[in-house]
Design a binder for these strands. Structure first.
Length: 313
DNA sequence: CGGGTTTGACCAGCGC
DNA sequence: GCGCTGGTCAAACCCG
């Protein structure tokens, strides 16, 4: 487990020497308008290049994407040099990037990374619940339990986790808006990093989605967000009717609209990215700014080949 | 007052 | 077996 995080993130995406490391990256757009402006370059045709049916992270977050699909996709991705690697601890990266325990962020030359884990079971209780159950607040034997966390968890029963999906976003704010409401339930100092990692849970009842947010060790301006689980509901924003605008592709190219859904902007590339080295998921004829709009596509290219295939007979 | 955040403590898993 | 680290809990606190 201890490697999980590192395996996932500790490669500096901006380093130039990972030609050997293929990976999908998902540069998120910054919440910061100025930065956004500096990076995003409106280019409508970018979107045109995409199939309207492509699956986006937003969709992923909305639960419209089947995890099994993702899982399969990632498995497949293992065979592809383009792919990053799985995130969950027990699963070693598919052949790439043995984690560098030095705190380098893994991944690609691209600004962001995405990874997922399929090890998890489908159980929608990724631990939180089990822990809760074991901790009957004010239990009869309360005396000691006042502070102690009892552990009802059965031994030998490895805790199952939801598949995970990590992204790197260049942003000044740690907690990026993604349309969902989150409650922070913990913060921990991260080894070898001056930046703490924050833990959030979806506030929607019965939704067990969690996410972790931390900053890149090498580039503090990069926020690494790891989603775990699948939303069992619609985004509050969507329900509110904002979704139309927020999820609209146009949003991606409209700095003024100040995206609230980074997921939709996943592919924003940091200015420092060396595209040349990217073995990438992006078509070579596409320029960085445009790649921005390929986010989902690019991402899914690795993640959800099946979807792509549909679009590319 | 309800909901979110902070923070210290506990526990599980893993490596040595 | 021990220590370290990640993940989570929950009381206290904060805020609108």
């Amino acid at each position: 487990m201890s490697n999980e995080g590192r395996d996932l993130y500790h490669h500096n995406p901006f380093h130039n020497d990972h030609s050997s490391i293929g990976g999908t990256s998902f540069p998120f757009p910054s919440d910061h308008p100025s930065m956004y402006n500096s990076i995003v370059e409106p280019s409508a045709h970018n979107l045109h290049g995409l199939d309207p049916a492509y699956m986006s992270f937003t969709e992923y977050l909305h639960g419209s994407m089947d995890y099994s699909t993702l899982a399969r996709s990632f498995d497949l991705s293992c065979s592809s040099p383009e792919v990053l690697y799985s995130a969950e601890g027990t699963q070693k990266p598919c052949g790439v990037g043995e984690s560098v325990g030095t705190g380098d962020i893994p991944v690609t030359p691209n600004s962001s990374v995405s990874s997922s884990s399929t090890e998890a079971g489908a159980e929608d209780d990724s631990g939180g619940k089990s822990k809760k159950e074991r901790q009957p607040k004010g239990s009869e034997d309360g005396v000691e339990s006042s502070k102690k966390v009892n552990k009802p968890k059965k031994k030998g029963q490895k805790r199952q986790r939801e598949p995970r999906f990590a992204f790197m976003t260049k942003s000044e704010v740690d907690h990026l808006e993604d349309g969902y409401r989150w409650r922070k339930y913990g913060q921990k100092a991260v080894k070898n990093s001056p930046y703490p990692r924050s833990y959030y849970r979806c506030t929607t009842q019965k939704c067990t989605v969690k996410k972790r947010v931390e900053r890149s060790l090498h580039d503090p301006s990069i926020v690494i967000t790891t989603y775990e689980g699948q939303h069992t509901h619609q985004s509050p924003a969507t329900l509110r009717g904002n979704a139309a605008g927020m999820f609209s592709p146009s949003m991606l190219i409209s700095p003024q609209s100040r995206p609230s859904f980074p997921q939709e902007l996943l592919f924003q590339m940091p200015p420092t990215i060396n595209y040349g080295n990217t073995s990438s998921i992006y078509p070579r004829n596409i320029t960085p700014p445009q790649q921005l709009q390929l986010p989902d596509y690019g991402l899914l290219q690795d993640i959800v080949p099946s979807l792509i295939h549909k679009q590319q007979p």
